[in-house]
């Protein structure tokens, strides 16, 4: 089980959180002018790195805040969090 350091509540068990996938995917500013392959890129293509991953979590059963986490997908070690403020 991961021990996730919520920037607001401190380290808590993974069960209190919900995983939110890859971070920093920017919503298209002009969706009307997007090509099909740009849509595919935005909606479906993912980095899915073996190693450092920037990802989103929400403290569902806690403060209910979203925040970003930098986690290694091989060691599962969390090396940074960002409270998005």
């Amino acid at each position: 089980m991961l021990l996730i350091p919520c920037p607001w509540c401190g380290p808590r068990e993974e069960n209190e959180f919900t995983y939110g996938g890859e971070a920093d995917i920017v919503r298209p500013v002009e969706p009307d002018s997007l090509t099909d392959s740009e849509w595919a890129n935005y909606l479906f293509m993912r980095k899915n790195p073996r190693g450092l991953h920037h990802e989103q979590w929400v403290h569902t059963f806690g403060c209910r805040q979203w925040f970003n986490v930098q986690r290694d997908t091989v060691t599962y070690q969390i090396t940074a969090t960002d409270n998005l403020r």
Binding site: M1, L2, E14, Y19, N48, R50, H53, E55, R71, T73, V74, T75, Y76
Partner: peptide, 9 residues
């Protein structure tokens, strides 16, 4: 979560 460790929670 995503993970390559062949290990889960």
């Amino acid at each position: 979560y995503t993970g390559y460790a062949q290990r889960g929670s």
